[in-house]
Design a protein around this nucleic acid. Structure first.
Lengths: 265, 265
DNA sequence: GACTTTCGTTCCGTTTTCCGGAACATTATT
DNA sequence: AATAATGTTCCGGAAAACGGAACGAAAGTC
């Protein structure tokens, strides 16, 4: 069994201190940390101040106690709320929803799963809800297809490794069909879901390309089958494509990098 | 303006990488991190693996992408849910509530504020709610008095530095009175709140002493004034005291340390 | 299926930082 | 006022982090 204060990596000692601070926020003194972790107080002091400098902890009660810092909390919110991405996309999604009276949403790739980041529902009676945070079935959802179609083989393999349930009579889960469906997505530039999740519901989706042509996000629109799969379809796809292009430019990691570089000079 | 990749502390580079991982969970490759942070790929590699070893990040899609690790999520939940403390105390609080049919709750000191950690309400019509997470007024709440009475002057000063609103006709906020009230708490071992927050509500509370006599937590019971301030009071205080002693032993940092030491040998 | 490119990993000498004992400064306690 | 405890700075020896170069392992290409 590993000794408690044996660090398993360069960060481990910091993390042990931070865990202590998290467990007893705002009440632990330097001496406590020192004795609990069996560290020389000099080292405990250095570690604590290191955490404070990095924004992971902060002084409390005039430097005689420590609590979790803002940076750590920001880190949590970054994943939970999708941070700046949500802020960027929300206005665009609202516009799309207002123009079409259908539910529009943004999904993102996390690992090999596709989850809903933001969703805006129209203010009409007959609408479908898309719950932020839920995972989209890779073999059925339009937004999932739109993203997975542009991923590496490794991601595709992992995404289709589990059970792929047949949700309706229209759902297909044979790997051969999926590959072909994804090829179709790539060739025509958008994905569809025609009653593959719910009998009467359809969805269309387009991938959002970053500047290096990679795809982490997709934009989707869903509603009753006959309201989606009709003569308005081409116009709506164009609208989605336009928004996706705008978002692609903003979301692009390349752009983000560039702004950082400019700021650095 | 500070250059982006200029580390302000030993942890800063790690944090920058971690923030990137948090923003694009499960999709960033080593090469991305390297180019975005303008690091040699060797360094990016070392930093990422360091994060993984420390449990702050973890491999995704077979080591070709990274996402937030379990340790970080545990850390963030530790403060939000009160972790093991909540698990420990909940059963005891339930017993107290069942026996008395009053709302019982555990509060904790965070910095110089006292907040509700867990609260159990009885299953009767006429009950008072205590919302977990809310802050207790230091000059009025029984649990707050029970904790603040045993803090250092620095904490007391910070706790009473802001506005202390007069919530009812019974509330007092002159510093002189507060000091005297806290002295009373210390001498008789429990705190009361007699209509100082809501006209008809009273509360009693006892501090939970850790093995080194410090106080971070308090146990409280609240209900309509006439149901609290009657001949049952002594028995209920005894019941609270007993539970507080049990929890004190379990919560004690000393105990926690000891168990770690045992595990280490 | 062989080739090319890209990505992730290991190696290792140099450099930088960390480590923690001792002394110092600063606040509570008697 | 004296004493004890806590937080902070100093600094030489020790131990890492650092990153260029070279090496394996995939993905994409023909």
């Amino acid at each position: 069994m590993a000794k408690f204060d044996e660090a398993v990596g360069p960060l481990d000692r910091y993390m042990q201190v931070l865990e202590l601070v998290a467990t007893f926020p705002g009440v632990l003194t330097l001496a406590d940390v020192s004795s609990l972790l069996d560290l020389p107080k000099t080292s405990a002091h250095r570690l604590l101040k290191g955490l404070v400098r990095a924004g992971l902890a902060k002084d409390s009660v005039g430097g005689r106690a420590y609590q979790l810092g803002d940076r750590l909390l920001r880190l949590l919110h970054a994943t939970a709320d999708d941070g700046w991405i949500a802020a960027l996309a929300r206005a665009h999604l609202q516009e799309l929803t207002d123009a079409t009276s259908e539910t529009c949403y943004l999904t993102r790739l996390i690992g090999a799963r596709v989850v809903v980041a933001i969703s805006i529902s129209p203010d009409v009676r007959w609408r479908s809800y898309v719950q932020p945070g839920i995972e989209m079935p890779v073999h059925a959802a339009a937004t999932a297809k739109a993203i997975i179609a542009y991923q590496s083989k490794a991601v595709l393999a992992e995404a289709t490794s589990g059970d792929l349930p047949l949700l309706t009579a229209n759902t297909r889960n044979d790997r051969k069909w999926i590959e072909q469906e994804l090829a179709t997505v790539r060739s025509r530039g958008h994905a569809t879901c025609i009653g593959e999740i719910d009998e009467g519901l359809a969805a269309i989706a387009v991938p959002i390309f970053l500047s290096d042509r990679r795809v982490f996000y997709a934009l989707g629109m869903t509603g009753p089958l006959q309201r989606i799969m009709n003569e308005q379809l081409p116009d709506r796809l164009t609208a989605l494509r336009n928004v996706a292009d705008v978002l692609g430019k903003s979301l692009s990691i390349g752009e983000k990098l560039k702004s950082k570089d400019v700021a650095a000079k």
